[in-house]
C-alpha cells in the first residue's frame, strides 16, 4: 500500500497553482495526481516524492488534508488489461471509492491507483491472482 495525500481545495482559480508552488519550494515532486471536483470544492489526491516535506508545506499554508492508504496496481498495458483487474474486483464485490492512473516511463505496465471499500479483500485478491502491486519505494516515494 502507498500513502496518498488528499487535500481539500476550494473551487477557485489559482488554488492548485499556489499548492504546487509550495511543493516546488519544499522540493516535493508530484508523482501522480487526480482531482475530484464539485461546484463548490475539490479534493486533490496526490502521490508525492516526500510525504513529510509535503505535509510540512501543507501545514504551513493551513491546508486541510488527510493521508490515505491506496493500492497501486500494475496493470498490463494492453487492451483488456484494466478490464481484467476490474472484472476480478467486481466479482469479489470490492467497490472502488476512486481510481486514477499513474504514468511511469519506460515500463511495460500501466499503474492504477485504487482506493477501495474493502482493503483487506483487495489485498487478498491481488495476492491470489498474482497481480503485482507497486510499493512506494519503487515509485520513488518516501
Amino acid at each position: 500500500m502507498v500513502q496518498q495525500l488528499s487535500v481539500f481545495l476550494q473551487n477557485r482559480s489559482g488554488k492548485i497553482a499556489t499548492l504546487t508552488e509550495a511543493f516546488y519550494e519544499n522540493g516535493v515532486d508530484i508523482r501522480a495526481l487526480s482531482i475530484a471536483d464539485t461546484t463548490d470544492f475539490g479534493i486533490l489526491r496526490i502521490l508525492v516524492s516526500n510525504l513529510e516535506k509535503a505535509k510540512q508545506a501543507l501545514d504551513r499554508l493551513n491546508y486541510i488534508y488527510s493521508v490515505n492508504e491506496v493500492f497501486v496496481v500494475a496493470v498490463p498495458d494492453v487492451p483488456g488489461g484494466l478490464a481484467g483487474v476490474l472484472r476480478l474486483m467486481s466479482a469479489h464485490r470490492i467497490d472502488i471509492e476512486y481510481m486514477y492512473s499513474l504514468v511511469d516511463r519506460g515500463k511495460n505496465d500501466a499503474y492504477m491507483v485504487f482506493r477501495v471499500s474493502d482493503p483487506d479483500a483487495m489485498q487478498q485478491l491481488l495476492q491470489e491472482n498474482d497481480l503485482m502491486t507497486v510499493s512506494g519505494v519503487s515509485l520513488g516515494l518516501a
Binding site: D37, I43, R45, I64, R115
Partner: peptide, 15 residues
C-alpha cells in the same frame, strides 16, 4: 471552514 475532523477524501463523504 472545514476542519480536519470532518474532512473526507471522497466527494461523497464531504457531501
Amino acid at each position: 471552514e472545514i476542519s480536519r475532523e470532518v474532512f473526507s477524501d471522497t466527494v461523497r463523504g464531504l457531501a
